[in-house]
Amino acid sequence: MFQAISSKGVLRSTLIALSWVPVLLTINNNVVHIAQIRGTSMQPTLNPQTETLATDWVLLWKLGAKNSINLSRNDVILFKAPTNPGKVYCKRVKGLPFDTIETKFPYPKPQVNLPRGHIWVEGDNFFHSVDSNTFGPISSGLVVGKVVSIVWPPSRWGSDLELSTGRDCITKRAVVE
């Protein structure tokens, strides 16, 4: 008798716990998320430890990040790779819609005007970065989230996300109305 009641109780708690899973997923998808950063393209700001395999984990703010109005120049963002939607890249926003950008190799034109809803992204370590100079301006709809702070490892807490902001490439900023 006692046994039956307790197993019923376990089932009940499990179901209640499960009913909260969609809530967690919703928050994870739309509000905040923790993501691991791989690769060296954002050195020295992210993943500065070249010798060790340690990687940075960051807190990602997702709410409204797909809208270019909510993005600023020098924000560090994660976005779906335009050339492969299964991959996510981490770069720095270097230009907002209607800015004029001075490009570098291998972009085929020396200058580009960013169209409506498009941003220019580059890695801080711009010698080792596949960025807008390769795949062009990206639609802000590809943005997954904005990096707010480094959460792991603890030694990196409070690190400055604008330690280096890459190269200066804006030749003309969009006029803000």
Binding site: P82, T83, Y107, P108, K109, P115, H118, T134, F135, G136, P137, I138, S139
Partner: peptide
Amino acid sequence: MAPPTTIR
């Protein structure tokens, strides 16, 4: 805007 593409 897609990557730079050439017209053929």
